[in-house]
């Protein structure tokens, strides 16, 4: 059987590593991207069941990536979990109006991330 495939976009290598580790352990197939440009390239190349997106990215910001995702017909329905280290109400609001499916504040609990991904991928 195919594993559910998830793309993680995160510029902090350590966080990327922890996210990859816990999701792999939760039996997800993981792709990673360190910035928005790479993320959009991967999104076009593969089909993902969910996207985990950090807001603070070098170059194209997380919100911009989310905007491109939502403006793309093929990706309209893709569940997007936004991660933010700022955790301010304004950021959450901006993310939600731009089209985030879920919003998780850093530091997160591993269980929360896994639960949310499972929930959204129907897994």
């Amino acid at each position: 059987m195919f594993k559910t495939r998830v793309l993680i976009v995160e510029d902090e290598p350590n966080i990327m590593e922890s996210l990859s580790f816990i999701l792999q352990r939760a039996d997800f197939d993981i792709d990673t991207a360190p910035d928005g440009v790479e993320a959009l390239r991967q999104l076009r190349r593969h089909t993902y069941s969910a996207l985990i997106l950090d807001l603070m990215l070098p170059g194209i910001s997380g919100l911009d990536v989310l905007r491109s995702v939502r403006s793309d017909k093929a990706l309209e329905a893709l569940p997007v979990i936004v991660l933010s280290a700022k955790g301010q109400a304004a950021d959450r609001k901006a993310a939600e109006t731009t089209g985030a499916t879920a919003f998780i504040t850093k530091p997160f609990s591993n269980a929360e991330v896994i639960d949310r991904v499972r929930e959204l991928t129907g897994g």
Partner: peptide, 25 residues
């Protein structure tokens, strides 16, 4: 403040996440 929050939360995220990994696995 927003920046400081971000700066603090980033290492905190790694610390929390990896501690949880170590505790669970």
């Amino acid at each position: 403040l927003s920046q400081v929050s971000h700066e603090v939360r980033t290492p905190m995220t790694s610390i929390r996440s990896f501690s949880e990994i170590l505790l669970e696995h």
